[in-house]
């Protein structure tokens, strides 16, 4: 080994650690590009495997599935009609009271292509990058509930900080009691239990198991009203000054395959 090598290694480390953010991002982008062929190959293999599995489905299974979807479609149409009526009424009342209208969510589907290679954060990679219009802090969700927010964007993929990550603070509210709270960071990066902890701002006597929790919408990142999860149990903390509740998340973070990114 050359005697100057440790010194050169340390100097290089200092250079890397002190790179300006734009230069570091560009270097990260250049290095991450090396992995794109593998992500593409993986996606192609999954697509081929899916195609092959479709071929194995019997005709009767497909017919049953179509019938189930038709029934579900009719129920959804009915619910959409009721919602449209309620929205129109809500809009009229807002106009009458002079309140600002609520913006509607528009979503764009994205596929989860990988997860964080280390275990120090809760993060996944999705195939939605700046070329498709991705921006930092866009909300990511599934129909079941909130997933997280976009942490960083590359041209062809983005990193999503999941709920429970230190960089994904969420202000939430208990629907039934309208008590506000925040989601605390998780104690580990594993997602298998599907739980996060919520802390209310004041001691709550009304928070109880079974109540649903949605986003509060006052942080400027997450829109109001996105379902987050359901309270499993509660306990008093800080000598009774506040309450902690364990939430079962609506979105199954350990089984994410497709997500929706909310766009303005």
């Amino acid at each position: 080994m050359h005697y100057w090598m440790p010194g050169a290694a340390l100097a290089l480390a200092l250079v890397f650690l002190n790179l300006p953010p734009t230069a570091a991002d560009r270097l990260k982008l250049a290095v991450s590009t090396l992995f794109l062929p593998l992500f593409g190959l993986n996606r192609s293999i999954q697509a081929v495997a899916d195609e092959a599995s479709y071929g194995l489905l019997t005709r009767s299974t497909l017919i049953r599935e179509v019938e189930r979807l038709q029934r579900e479609n009719q129920q959804l149409k009915l619910a959409a009609a009721q919602t449209a009526d309620a929205l129109a009424e809500n809009s009229r009342l807002r106009t009458a009271l002079g309140w600002q209208g609520r913006g509607s969510w528009k979503g764009r589907a994205a596929r989860v292509i990988g997860r964080e290679p280390t275990t120090w954060w809760r993060s996944v990679l999705i195939d939605y990058g700046s070329l498709q219009g991705a921006q930092v802090n866009q909300t990511v969700m599934t129909p079941e509930g909130l997933v997280g927010r976009i942490r960083s964007v590359q041209p062809t993929f983005s990193q999503v900080a999941l709920i429970g990550d230190p960089e994904c603070g969420v202000s939430v509210v208990i629907n039934e009691t309208r008590e506000p709270g925040t989601i605390l960071e998780a104690r580990s990066a594993t997602l298998s239990d599907g739980m996060v902890t919520m802390r209310t701002l004041q001691h709550s006597v009304t928070a109880m198991a079974g109540q649903s929790v949605t986003t509060l919408g006052n942080g400027g990142v997450f829109p109001k009203g996105i379902p987050v999860g359901q309270i499993i149990d509660t306990r008093s903390v800080d000598g009774g000054l506040s309450t902690e509740a364990r939430l079962k998340l609506g979105a199954q973070l350990n089984r994410l395959e497709e997500v929706w990114v909310l766009t303005p």
């Binding site: 290089l12 480390a13 890397f16 650690l17 991450s32 290679p117 280390t118 942490r151 990193q159």
Partner: peptide
């Protein structure tokens, strides 16, 4: 750099222990 580029880590964090 490969590990850092796919995670939210600051560039150079993984390189130093490995080296």
């Amino acid at each position: 750099l490969g590990l850092d580029s796919l995670s939210p880590m600051k560039l150079g964090i993984h390189y130093l222990p490995l080296l």
